[in-house]
Each structure stands twice: as structure tokens, then as C-alpha cells.
């Protein structure tokens, strides 16, 4: 650790066990100044556990965690005023209005942002004098995020901040996160929305069973694991049928790039380094072998495909 801590947050070999179960398994990553880092992973992957260890809320079994170049365990009082925390599950004080809640939390910090402008940023103007018990789920979630930003933190931990938000509120929160980034502050985010990670995160870490199995920007991940584009095609029968499997097998002997074809949406999908060439070769080959294609599409690869590639399962049904 040098004088300048370019890495605002550094995690090295982090391990956390719940009894016999290992929730976090030798996890290492870092977040730089002005960077938004997203942890992606199925339910139970260990994202919340990781974040809560970093926030100093949970005990760790092994590994090093440094924030602003200091260990959170020994330097809580120095670090806490400069981080923002939004927990995945908190029920704030229900009898308090939005404004009162912010006043309460503001009082905990040596310095805090202007409450009215924070309220405005999270579109809470209309409900600022309402008690939390009278708010909708999405409004409450926005209060949670507002509380996390109250001390103008250098590093913000947001654990599924957009869960339960309507599309408009999500987009507003995205803008807010971008603004935080532009102020050279950093964000560690977890989310279940791949598009969100793609839009917001400078780097993404994919976590499965407590381990980081891939890391990079969305573009890097896509290129590395899927290729920029993928060819999706459909035979007469759905991909699960033996006829379709046989057809695929025949094609694979001719076209080696189909080796890694995966089932998707009733058809198959395979990475194509040069899309047009792949289409031409596939069409030629099916013609030759007398296989009938009912659909053919060139798709831009997404994180969804990365996820499929890495875990063999699509993101939404990958619960552990």
C-alpha cells in the first residue's frame, strides 16, 4: 500500500464460513477511485456477505480488506464517516417521515449533504413529510439509498439498490450513480439486472458460490467469453429433441466453431468471431446436408451470454 491509494478498496483472499458452509471463498478484487464496480451473481453467491464484511458489519475468517488504505477492523472510526451503506434488507424507523429519517442519519455524521437537494435527487419531494410506513416499497428503497448518500461518501456500497424500483426510478438512480462517479467517488454495487451492470459498471465481477469466476468491463467479458456476436439458429424441431441434436452433431463435424453451441430459446447459439462468415458457412453446410433451418439470427453478445457461457445456465434460473 503506497502513499496514494489509487485503490480505494482492496480485497485480498477473503474467506467467510457459516458453519460448514463457505459463503465467500478466497475472493480478491479492488475498486478504484471514481469507479463503479458491480458484483453479479445468482442468489446465494455471497455478494451480500462480501459487502457486509467490507462495511465492517460481519466478521471474516481469512483475508485482508483495506479501505482508503486502512483495515476496516482496526480503523472503523476513521473509515465509517466516509463510506455510504445501503443494506439489502433494512426496515428503517417506520414512524418517521422521510425528512426526519434523513435528519436522524445526518446527525450521525460529522458532515452531511443538504437534505432538500438529496430528497430532490431521489424524487422524494412529494413524500418527504410522509411516514415511512405509508410509503410504497420502491419509495422506501429510495429512502434507503438516500440515507447511504447522506454523508457524501467517498465509497458507496449499494446492495441491490434498484430492486423494486419502477423503470423511471431505476433510470433516475442510474443518473445519480453516474453523477457520483463523475465526482470521482466510487461505488460497489450488486444487482440482478444485467443491463444495469452493463450500463453503470466500469468493471464487473461475476461471483458464483463465493468465488470470483470472471472480472472485467462488460465489453471485455463479452469478448473474452462469447465473442462480440453470436449466431442463433433453430431447426424444425426444438433443441431438446433428438432430431435437432442429431442435426447439430452432423453440422459440428463440418463446422468446428459450432463445438461450443449451447441451447437457447428453443434453438442453439454459438459464438461467431466474424458474424457474416459464420452465417454463410452455416447456410452452405445446412444446404449440403439437407438440414432445414427455420430461423437464423445474428445477435450481439450480452452479459447474459457470458453468464450462460460461464455457468452453463441462464442468469435468471441460476439460483443456487
Amino acid at each position: 500500500m503506497g502513499e496514494t491509494h489509487e485503490n480505494l478498496l482492496n480485497v485480498d483472499g477473503l474467506v467467510k464460513n457459516y458453519g460448514k458452509q463457505r459463503a465467500v471463498d478466497h475472493l480478491s478484487f479492488s475498486v478504484n477511485e471514481g469507479e463503479c464496480y458491480a458484483l453479479l451473481g445468482p442468489n446465494g453467491a455471497g455478494k451480500t456477505t462480501t459487502i457486509e464484511i467490507l462495511e465492517g458489519l460481519q466478521h471474516r475468517d481469512e483475508g485482508r480488506v483495506s479501505i482508503f488504505g486502512k483495515d476496516i477492523k482496526q480503523n472503523r472510526t476513521e473509515i465509517l464517516p466516509h463510506i455510504g451503506v445501503q443494506l439489502q434488507e433494512t426496515v428503517l424507523y417506520q414512524k418517521y417521515t422521510v425528512k426526519e429519517t434523513l435528519q436522524l442519519f445526518a446527525s450521525f455524521f460529522p458532515e452531511h449533504v443538504d437534505l432538500d437537494s438529496l430528497i430532490a435527487k431521489l424524487d422524494l419531494d412529494d413524500v418527504k413529510d410522509k411516514r415511512l410506513q405509508k410509503l410504497s416499497g420502491g419509495q422506501r428503497q429510495r429512502v434507503n439509498v438516500a440515507v447511504a448518500l447522506i454523508n457524501s461518501p467517498k465509497l458507496v456500497f449499494l446492495d441491490e439498490p434498484t430492486t423494486g424500483l419502477d423503470p423511471q426510478s431505476r433510470r433516475n438512480l442510474w443518473d445519480l450513480i453516474k453523477q457520483i462517479k463523475s465526482e470521482n467517488r466510487s461505488i460497489l454495487l450488486t444487482t440482478h439486472y444485467l443491463d444495469e451492470a452493463e450500463i453503470l459498471a466500469d468493471r464487473i465481477g461475476i461471483m458464483v458460490k463465493g468465488r470470483l469466476i470472471a472480472e472485467g468491463s462488460a465489453k471485455e467479458l463479452v469478448l473474452k467469453y462469447c465473442g462480440a456476436q453470436a449466431l442463433w439458429f433453430h431447426f424444425k424441431e426444438d433443441c431438446g429433441s433428438s432430431a435437432a441434436q442429431e442435426d447439430l452433431f452432423k453440422l459440428q463435424t463440418e463446422l468446428p466453431w459450432l463445438e461450443k453451441a449451447k441451447m437457447k430459446d428453443g434453438g442453439f447459439i454459438a459464438t461467431a468471431s466474424v458474424g457474416v462468415e459464420a452465417i454463410q458457412s452455416l447456410v452452405r453446410c445446412t444446404d449440403k446436408l439437407g438440414i432445414k433451418l427455420t430461423a437464423l439470427e445474428l445477435r450481439d453478445s450480452t452479459l447474459e451470454d457470458v453468464f450462460l457461457e460461464l455457468t452453463g445456465r441462464s442468469y435468471n434460473d441460476a439460483d443456487q
Binding site: E55, V85, L87, T90, F105
Partner: peptide, 11 residues
């Protein structure tokens, strides 16, 4: 309600 946990993450 996890409110103490939230408090714990403040100074």
C-alpha cells in the same frame, strides 16, 4: 428490522 446493523455502519 436490521436497523441496528444499519446504525453499526455509521459513526
Amino acid at each position: 428490522n436490521n436497523l441496528f446493523k444499519r446504525f453499526l455502519a455509521t459513526p
